[in-house]
Structures are given as structure tokens and as C-alpha cells.
Simulated scan of single mutants.
Amino acid sequence: MDDSDYLRLLTSQAEQANAFLSNARKWERERWVCQRLLQGLNIAYHTEDFTQASQEPPDVLFGEARFEVFFVLDEGRRLNDEWREELQRRRSAYSLSQLVRREARPKRIPASKLLQRLGPTLHKKAKNYQERDIDLGQLDIVAFSSLKREVLDLNSHFPPPTEYLRQGWRSLSLVGPTFARVLFAQPDAPDFLRNNLGRSIIFDVGISL
């Protein structure tokens, strides 16, 4: 593969990323996050095993699981804008050298700090759903960490997510490019979540957006 072929491949990948991040494919993104969690937990599944709820929340149904999905991003970062800009950059490039740019190495952060990143979204969701009389105890939260400027120190200790447990969610799982972890699962949560409670799973291949 020569440079021009590789440049076309990079452009095609950016086009696919933009399509994947469109509003029309919101549920497909949410399903992908759930599939990533199941892969980490070594739970077998077929695409047709996932269904879309007639009314949100939840976002994705899988057996007894009622997954509610959200993305954790760097402050001020928008994936749609980021990939739209990247697609334009790749389309306008005439050589691979034009695409080279220096990126600061991500800062390693402890698990405690990553858990804090979940706070704003979980507090907002909890308040919104409670005002709508939606039972938080029927929702299995899955947060996908897609941080660019920070990366989880996989050797750090995960503190008890007491604050989020008190909000009343049925379960809370965290997925990242290279890891998955069930942070807590209530007694009535699906077995596959309770059986993997507190265990960090490292992926062989990292995937990020």
C-alpha cells in the first residue's frame, strides 16, 4: 500500500466515524458500548439480542439488562465537531506528512479521578428521571470513557462509588478503550453484572473514538 492508498484509507475511516457519530446512529453507538462491556465480561451475544426500548430510558435492552449509556469526554470536547474537522483535514491533504501533528501525551489519572468525571452526567440524569417519576432502580448505567487528554492508570485503586450507589441506580459499569469494570450491582441486577462486580478486565485491543 503506497501513501496515496493509505491516505484514502484514513479518509474513509474518518467518513465512517462521522457517520457513526450522527444522530441517526445514536442507538447503534449505544449498542456498541454495551457490546464492548459484554466482550470484556466474556458474555456471548448476537446482534439481534439487543433491542431498542419503546420509550427512553433505557437506551438498550439485553435480556434482563436495561442499559442507559453515556459518554465521558474531556471538558469542552465534542466528538462530532472533532471528527468533522478531522475528515476535512484528511480530505484536503495531498500527502501523509500533512496529517502529522504533535499531540501531548495523555496524563495518567487514578481511578478515583475518573470516577469523579461521571458525577455531572449522573447527577443530571438522576434529577431529571426522578422529576419524571422514572425508577432509577430499574436502570443499568454504562459509562464509556473517551478521554483524549487523560488516561486511566490501570494499576490505581477503584474507591467505592458510594455517591452513585446512593442515587439508586440498579448497576453502574465503566468501559474505556482498554478496560471494563462493573462498579456496583444491586441484588436484583442481571447475574452477569453481579458475577463480575469489582473485577477490572483489560482488553487485548484498545478501541476509542
Rank of each mutant, 00 (worst) to 15 (best):
S4H: 04
L7E: 12
L9V: 03
L10G: 07
Q13A: 06
Q13Y: 09
R25C: 06
R31W: 11
C34E: 04
L37N: 15
L38G: 06
G40M: 07
I43F: 15
Y45Q: 00
Q52K: 13
A53E: 10
A53Q: 03
P57W: 09
P57T: 07
P57H: 00
P58Y: 00
P58Q: 02
D59M: 04
D59Y: 03
F62K: 05
G63R: 02
A65Y: 01
R66P: 04
E68V: 15
D74A: 07
G76E: 04
G76A: 00
R78T: 15
D81T: 00
R84L: 07
E85C: 13
E86A: 09
R89V: 09
R91N: 15
S92Q: 11
V100I: 01
R102T: 09
K107N: 15
Q116F: 11
L118W: 13
L118Q: 14
L122H: 03
H123Q: 03
Y129L: 05
Y129K: 05
I134R: 05
D135C: 08
L139C: 04
L139E: 10
D140F: 09
D140Y: 09
D140N: 04
A143S: 03
S146M: 15
S146A: 15
K148T: 15
K148G: 13
E150P: 10
L152V: 11
D153P: 12
L154R: 06
L154H: 01
H157P: 15
H157V: 14
F158N: 13
T162G: 01
E163V: 12
Q167F: 04
G168A: 03
W169C: 08
R170A: 11
L174W: 10
G176M: 06
P177I: 07
T178S: 00
A180R: 00
A180I: 11
R181W: 10
L183T: 15
L183I: 12
P187H: 05
P190R: 02
D191F: 02
F192N: 03
L193D: 10
R194T: 08
N196P: 09
S200I: 08
F203Q: 04
I207M: 07
